[in-house]
Design a protein around this nucleic acid. Structure first.
Lengths: 199, 199
DNA sequence: CTCCTTGTTGAATGATCGCTCAAAAAAAAC
DNA sequence: GTTTTTTTTGAGCGATCATTCAACAAGGAG
């Protein structure tokens, strides 16, 4: 929003977005404490001083990585499907099918960054846990609406379904990390949709 | 099998099994590199020298932890259900329901050790990945038998089903780590069984 | 008792961890 | 030109990492 017209002082000698992308890839593949400052500076092509001047400390850089991921197609997967698909069924099918494709995208590390980038540090762990848990609430809200609108039978339980689809989604991320192909994950997605309550 | 009748030299001053259990808990909660030798010696109540004498290096200790877990009820979950339940349907239902209970057992850390104890180290990561992937093969074999015996329709695809149940199981582990209750996971397990092919 | 074997101890190893800082460098402002 | 602002550099900080080792302790074997 507020892009300063003229930047004073010495300009950055590196592409900030590219450096952030390199950091993202490392955290994605090796997790928070599995990625060292040395690994980062190497991959980003800068020295520690530049990293700390541009991104703050390791934790701040990680936060920025997570935020950028949230604004990427992979991070907006759920939001996009919710707003573009007409029915709840279509939305959840779209979410799982997109996840199958994105979790196996050869351009990025396998799986979901929020599931893959494990962290032992308590603060970081709870931060990511909250982000993962957020999908349950989002799912439940959409399913409740679907039931009110009659798309789902009155016997259907939005909370149970929300938990189920979250588990499938996170399980697909693990499978992708373990080498599952896009085809396998697509099949898993379709099988999961078989659990959609009959009218 | 070969328990030496008489032990020569100075005896261990600590309970080896208890120490291994303490190490298991740490690796389970914080992962491989998230657990330091200092953390381990503290929790096991021994000093580094004793740890290295009794278990070898960190990697060897981790291997022993994984092996012991594989012989525990949580690790033998799949094998037990396969051999005790009469039908494939009952076996897979049992696996998911037992997983729901064990992944939320308050006596142990949440989730499945093989899913939770993330590792950035390449060797350790592939070691654990292979163990996780093993369930897909086991599942597929049982499902193939079920189809041959007529329990599953000819149209059912054992490989797809095996991948699906593995994804659900690993997703349940992630959900447990994120705070899901036993009730939630049980509901997820039941919903997953709705994907079982109709005859 | 003396050997022999094994375990424990406490200190210390070099490597790597996240991180900092004074000095030099590159730009705009004056 | 000089000043001011910002970034880069390269060295280095203390802390922690996994690991080792000589000295000592505790048991069985002779």
């Amino acid at each position: 929003m507020d892009t300063p017209e003229v930047r004073r002082g010495r300009p950055l000698t590196f592409d900030r977005a590219a450096a952030l992308a390199a950091a993202t890839r490392l955290f994605w593949e090796n997790g928070y404490e599995g990625t060292s400052i040395n690994d980062l500076t190497q991959a980003m092509g800068i020295r520690p001083g530049s990293l700390y001047a541009a991104f703050g400390d390791k934790r701040s850089l990680f936060n920025e990585v997570i935020e950028a991921y949230g604004r990427s197609p992979a991070g907006e997967l759920i939001w996009a499907a919710m707003h573009r698909e007409p029915t709840a069924f279509d939305a959840f099918r779209r979410i799982l099918l997109d996840a199958a494709a994105m979790y196996t995208d050869p351009e990025t590390p396998a799986g979901n960054l929020l599931c893959s980038a494990a962290a032992a540090d308590t603060d970081v762990a709870t931060y990511m846990r909250d982000l993962r848990n957020a999908s349950v609430g989002t799912f439940e809200k959409r399913l409740t609406t679907a039931r009110q609108e009659g798309e789902l039978p009155a016997t259907a339980d939005p909370r149970k379904l929300a938990a189920f689809f979250t588990a499938v989604m996170h399980g697909m991320s693990q499978r992708a990390r373990d080498g599952a192909t896009a085809a396998e994950l697509t099949d898993t997605a379709e099988l999961a949709m078989d659990s959609w309550p009959a009218r």
